[in-house]
Design a protein around this nucleic acid. Structure first.
Length: 873
RNA sequence: GGGCUCGUGGUCUAGUUGGUUAUGACGCGGCCUUUACAAGGCCGAGAUCGGUGGUUCGACUCCGCCCGAGCCCA
């Protein structure tokens, strides 16, 4: 094998492989229809929003996907790891307006779209660069952008098919409205933010009756007041239900109703009902068949029709109306109050509820939940998030947006009768603002159409990502294997994807949903630029390496939990990578020689080989359940402590001075185990794995096209012999170190006294390592060993003696350890007096710890896991 | 207010059918040039497992309550 460079230099090494991989077909998905679908592993990769910044939160999710993708490739599966971009949306529109110094209405729709596309492409390039630096293995042949006509034609198709199945309707209905973005938004896009408000107590004059005071935080909506409400159980108002009142300043007459939803503890216990202050108002308005008095405009002002205050924006209106109420004597009280208001999740502007004609997708809660239940959620409790959200849905999903840069809604209204015509599949992709359908109106026969200018919610684009990844609509749909995403978007992306896949294909979208947590900064808080605790992945890659960064992410915690990013984990990973580099370098000095001799394996060889087989199974099991943290920990532990500390040290003697047969055995074992270790590490640290793997003898091509290690395990007794050898070597090494001796210092001899029956094992490797003749002796060592302590095995004694166990252990502690040791040695069982009752327990249930006392000859006594080791220096 | 998740050495973390001396990392202190590696090795200090009550022969683990943190929802 060729020798590795003297030192590990991640920067050049990672750059080299990045370039080689980019030009290769290593990660290509085989889309041939003849390919066995049983060995497919398709990932529904999140299409991120092209902000231009691939941050550490993204990196967490992509690391998980890449670990899974690379692992499943090693398992011989045909992996599809596509990458899309969720291009449409308001933030890009705003950015383009800013950069170009224009309003979107200054240019044509088409021109504005073009500017958005151009801007988006630049953002994508920047994020792609970071992804590649991090070593992710997407198949770039499958890259897609939701703004491509190919893709948005699919979005339109999904809309048309859903309309045909009766999922789509166009109606006037109250919707959440962002007055800054000037568009309808869905429930999922409303976030509740806590704020400081003012609770005003306003007196309504009774008509032929006494006055009544209501409490409100929104006096600016008085003009929209259509009713008043109190709790039916509220005795203060028991005889007032049905009374009429006059709304202050605006004069309309409203009636007092009783409804249990009113909180009698809040304010005066009486509230006003407006169209619309909040969702509760919408419920009352519908239930009691109240008037509709819309007073808020799409840009967040009072409508011109509102007497005196028309045209004011809502904040001004609040101030002026409050002043007017005071002047007229209607304002009884004002006090500050903590309140939670709905806000647009993109711009934090408080939302309004306006009644508008919009396009809706029907939310079928039962259908969604039944599909969601079929999905395996990792971790399991994340299903609860989706369930809670789904059960709480009370409005259909409003999918129309009054924007430009998004997928057009393929529909037209008839100029004569107003009938809405939805495109047929043949019309797609359709640009309704430019082209008319070539049909007559089925209602009235007219042929003049006006295209819909509303566009779709961008979640309509991204919620078919699973379908797209599975080749829809060309190929028949089967759930894909994996969805990976953050828990913050369960109510949106996961929810909508399940809804859409159920509606279109009557299927769950994925077999498994792997949900990641958030990445916290070093101070334990969620990372944010304003808190100055954020870390850019690209900086870590430049300072240390992508390979180390990826390990740090894997070890941050088990998937699903929030992880705190720790530079020390990167440091520790770097050390491990250097260690592996040096192990490979050592191997490269020895694995060159052609082995013609028949290998003669020792217990040491059989042990590491067998242990490696078991480790490979354990790690595979962890990878199968996405326990990346445990998998990597296991690999690291094995490589560092078993392979490097123990095995390598034990076979050095043979490698340098053994017979051809002995050397052949050591070389082959080392080669096999190192190769297996590197393959197990490959999903986590693909760059170093690639470099080291290609230096091993007998390998060809990339480690990422290799197979998962398949080694034969030996039976336990074989492994136990090796463990014995390693434990003795380790004990002697530690003792030499402590005694201030050179580790290769000569010793007179070493005697081993096993007390667990493992007394036959090869001693050749051990002799070379500890640099002393080895004797394995039966019985007790010939020095004075004093039993000093008993050590009961609770897992044997507990179940056997149940409520007597405490007394038995107590008796054991009180007994003379020498007596226990003697009974154990002579009878194989131990008789005790436990609180006056004689009990007999098996000798194996008690260990006796010995201590060396005053020996004549100079000797050191070491404990090596079930064996006593005597060292004669 | 409801729901979910979580409290383990200075810091981060492992420990899902209850059972030896509670895992590892980083950091800290000490010792050591050993034919892969000082970017290393060895040793050490450091935790009443958030608190409290219960179930049990036995609780970091199961249950109740309390305290604290975070997330989601209202």
């Amino acid at each position: 094998m060729t020798e590795l460079a003297e030192s590990y230099d991640p920067t050049t090494l990672e750059a080299k492989w990045r370039e080689e991989w980019a030009d290769s077909e290593l990660y290509r998905y085989d889309d041939d229809e003849t390919t066995d679908t049983d060995t497919q592993y398709v990932i529904d990769t999140p299409p991120p929003y092209p902000t231009g910044d691939f941050h550490i939160g993204n990196a967490l999710g992509w690391c998980y996907m890449d670990f899974a993708a690379r692992y499943h490739r090693l398992q011989g599966e045909n992996v599809s790891f596509p990458q899309g971009w969720d291009c449409h949306g308001l933030p890009t529109e705003v950015k383009v307006e800013e950069n170009q110094g224009i309003r979107r209405t200054d240019v044509s729709r088409e021109e504005f779209r073009e500017l958005c596309i151009e801007h988006t492409e630049g953002q994508i390039d920047a994020m792609k660069e970071t992804m590649q630096r991090l070593g992710f293995s997407q198949d770039w042949e499958q890259e897609f952008q939701t703004m491509d006509p190919d893709y948005w034609a699919k979005t339109q198709r999904s809309f048309v098919e859903m309309a045909e199945k009766g999922y789509v309707h166009r109606d006037e209905h109250p919707v959440n409205w962002c007055p800054r973005c000037e568009t309808a938004i869905a429930d999922a896009e409303v976030e509740n933010v806590d704020s400081q408000g003012t609770l005003a107590t306003v007196r309504f004059s009774g008509i032929d009756n006494d006055d009544l005071e209501i409490a409100t935080t929104r006096p600016e909506l008085l003009a929209a007041c259509v009713g008043m409400a109190v709790d039916p159980d509220d005795e203060r108002y028991a005889d007032r239900i049905g009374d009429s009142f006059e709304v202050p300043l605006f004069g309309q007459e409203v009636e007092l109703i009783a409804d249990e939803a009113v909180d009698g503890e809040f304010g005066t216990g009486a509230v006003m009902i407006c169209t619309f202050g909040d969702k509760q108002d919408v419920d009352w308005w519908a239930e009691y068949d109240l008037d509709l008095r819309p007073v808020v405009t799409e840009d967040g002002r009072l409508d011109e029709s509102v007497a005196e205050f028309g045209g004011l924006d809502l904040d001004e209106a609040k101030a002026e109306i409050t002043t007017a109420l005071q002047k007229e004597g209607y304002l009884e009280d004002e006090e500050p109050i903590e309140q939670s208001v709905g806000a647009c999740w993109r711009c934090d502007t408080p939302i309004e509820i306006l009644s508008k004609e919009q396009w809706f997708v029907r939310v079928d809660q039962d259908e969604i939940l039944s599909k969601a239940k079929e999905i395996e959620w990792v971790p399991e409790h994340m299903y609860g998030r989706l369930e809670e959200w789904t059960e709480g849905m009370d409005w259909d999903w409003v999918i129309s947006r009054q924007r430009v840069f998004a997928t057009p809604i393929p529909a037209w209204s008839c100029d004569d009768c107003g009938h809405w015509h939805i495109a047929t599949l043949d019309d797609l992709p359709a640009k309704p603002t430019e082209d008319d359908p070539a049909t007559e109106c089925p209602e009235c026969g007219a042929s003049e159409w006006t295209g819909e200018t509303d566009v779709m919610d961008t979640w309509m684009d991204s919620s078919i990502s699973a379908l797209h990844a599975a080749g829809w609509p060309e190929e028949s749909f089967e759930p894909v294997q994996l969805r990976e995403q953050g828990h913050d978007i369960i109510r949106t992306w996961a929810f909508y994807t399940i809804l859409r896949t159920a509606a279109l294909e009557d299927e769950k979208p994925w077999e498994e949903a792997l949900i990641n947590g958030m990445v916290l900064g070093t101070d334990g808080n969620k990372m944010s630029k304003s808190k100055d605790n954020s870390v850019a992945p690209i900086d870590v890659v430049e300072e240390q390496s992508a390979d180390a960064f990826r390990q740090a992410i894997a070890l941050g915690g088990q998937p699903g939990s929030d992880i705190q990013f720790q530079h020390k984990e990167v440091t520790s990973a770097s050390r491990f990578l250097t260690k592996l580099w040096n192990i490979t370098r050592f191997a490269s000095d020895h694995l060159d020689a052609a082995d013609e001799a028949e290998p003669s394996y020792t217990d040491t060889d059989r042990w590491i080989h067998s242990k490696c087989a078991r480790i490979a199974d354990d790690v595979a099991a962890d990878m199968d359940e996405h326990r990346f943290d445990r998998a990597l920990r296991t690999v690291r532990e094995f490589v560092w402590h078993d392979l490097a500390d123990d095995y390598l040290e034990l076979v050095k003697g043979r490698l340098y001075e053994g017979t051809p047969e002995e050397q052949a055995a050591a070389r082959q074992t080392l080669s096999t185990v190192l190769s297996a270790s590197i393959r197990m590490l490959a999903p986590f640290s693909p760059f170093l794995a690639e470099e080291t793997y290609r230096h091993l003898p007998g390998t060809s091509g990339s480690v990422h096209a290799a197979g998962w290690p398949e080694l034969d395990a030996e039976d336990e007794s074989v492994e136990a012999r090796g463990e014995r050898i390693a434990a003795v070597a380790s004990a002697v090494r530690a003792w030499k170190s402590e005694a201030g001796m050179a580790l290769n210092a000569d010793l007179d001899r070493v005697e081993i006294y096993p007390d667990d029956g493992i007394d036959e094992f090869d001693t050749g490797d051990l002799r070379a390592t500890v640099n002393a003749p080895i004797e394995v002796a039966a019985g007790e060592p010939d020095i004075e060993m004093v039993p000093v302590e008993t050590d009961p095995d609770h897992s044997t004694i507990g179940p056997k003696f149940r409520d007597q166990a405490g007394a038995v252990v107590g008796a054991l502690e009180d007994a003379d350890p020498g007596d226990i040791a003697a009974q154990k040695r002579e009878q194989g069982e131990i008789e005790l007096d436990a609180n006056g009752e004689v009990v007999v327990l098996d000798g194996d249930a008690v260990d006796v710890r010995h201590e060396q006392r005053a020996a004549g000859e100079t000797v050191e006594v070491l404990d090596a896991d079930g064996a006593t080791v005597l060292v004669f220096p």
